[in-house]
Design a protein around this nucleic acid. Sequence first.
RNA 1: GGCCCCGUCGUCUAGCGGUUAGGACACGGCCCUUUCAAGGCCGCGGCACGGGUUCGAUUCCCGUCGGGGUCACCA
Length: 519
Amino acid sequence: MIRTRFAPSPTGYLHIGGVRTALFNYLFAKKHGGQFILRIDDTDRQRNVAEALQPILDGLRWLGINWDEGPETGGQYAPYYQSQRTGKYQAAVDELLRRGAAYRDFAAPEEIQAERDTALNEKKTYTYSRTWAAQNDDDVKKFEAEGRQSVVRLKMPRSGSLIIHDLIRGDVEFQWADEQDHVIQRADGSFIYHLANVVDDEDFRISHVIRAEEHLSNTPRQIFMIQALGYRLPEYAHLPFVAEPGSKTKLSKRKLDKYLKNKDFSKLMTHGKSIAGRIGLEITDDNFNPVITDFYEQVGYLPEAVVNAMALVGWALDDKTEFFFMPDLIEHFSLAGVTKGAASFDPAKLFAFQEKHFVTKTAEEKYELCKPFLEKGNLTIPSKPFLLKLIEAAGDRIKVAGDILDFADFFMPDEALPYNEADVAKRFTPESLPLLQEFAARLERQDDWSSAALEALMQQFLDEKQIKANQVIHTLRVAVTGKSTGLGMFETLALLGKERVRRRIERAVALKTPQEQTS
RNA sequence: GGCCCCGUCGUCUAGCGGUUAGGACACGGCCCUUUCAAGGCCGCGGCACGGGUUCGAUUCCCGUCGGGGUCACCA
């Protein structure tokens, strides 16, 4: 039975790199009809776990990366929180001690540091002298009498080597002599991650450990424990990590300022901020950052777009297929398709996937996705038929659900419509204004207010006047929408309706020539 | 610094001894066009370097260089 796991720490946010790791674990398990387990690595008990965990659970659910066992869903190997499994860890430490694979060490941190410094000065590989290692109960009594505190260390081999058969990297050899006597239990009795990790993977029957590359160097000490304890050795697959845009350094949420210098990253952020600003979202580095999954949910990205984009960071099916939904990924995923080199997170490509996925949505689906943004934006929500028509007219101009806010002009009170001064200055000229007013008069007499009829009306007007469309359309657009860019002109008019078009044109003309109006 | 991993267009990648080195995103140009967006077409652009092995290396081996990870009583 294939069982994989994702083991986040409750940090308060779901890192986009973590998403990729979780996704690959999920895909691999599902592909082989196995289970995907979510385990919470909260051995550091300082934090408020529940609060710091929620964004991670929500993020995974939003993306559709559902776990078969773990927090909230439970499972036969519960609990899935490391903080609740200390009894098992203690038993494992005792067993390691009993089998002579670990020892109680009474060295003070300064004493260890001194040995390290000496080795460094002599340019030698540091190896602990085990001077304060307790060999027996008498040693323990003696050291304790000195008032020393102890930690438990692994008694690592000092010769020979270990070969890890990594499913992605092939065989990797480590010399035992290079390994340290790592601490597995702290002086305060709490346990170190590596010990907990090994115990849990055994307990949960994890068959494949699929994790980021940074753990490769940690694997020997874990395998040492696995062997010492007589556990089953899982298969290992060390994924390339998700790197910064345009660099090979690990992506970190703390380097936001640096990433903002990247054009594509900055574009994503600017776009997101413009939406966030309009829905009154308080923006901080912790909750609003393209390195964090929340960002995408908050501005209205599609989870399938994020999944599609992240699936291709370090994995490819072939030389042409790139557009995937989750079921496709499950069908096609394989560790053989995972690349070895660090792969940069590409904000532009993620955005491109968003576009590709969003256009596949029907107007009805887009309506459901967009509506919440109007609510959050405190806007008067127009009728569903109107919104549906607007969404259809907007077409692919709405790229993320939050973009609906760009079209608020269409349902805001006519008196509140803002005018872009530069556009007004450019389009309201002594030549264009009379034409605008003349066409407005014709609109006044027009009864068929369909987009096609309006276009015909315009064409007739142009023919009669012997003028070109751009001599009047731009002015009309600014008069009716306040700016020079937007939907098709006639769709705009049709959407707005006769009454509102008249009011807007009147107001625009009045704004442009206040003196004439008042005198 | 020790150990380990990695190295194909700017980015993500296909390639698994013989290819005009393919695709996607981004970028540039053209077309379409009432603006914007989309779309269509074209273009720019890559095997880190040096030795081998071989009839033949992007591909296999070694070295160099470069990038990264890890060396905690963090996970």
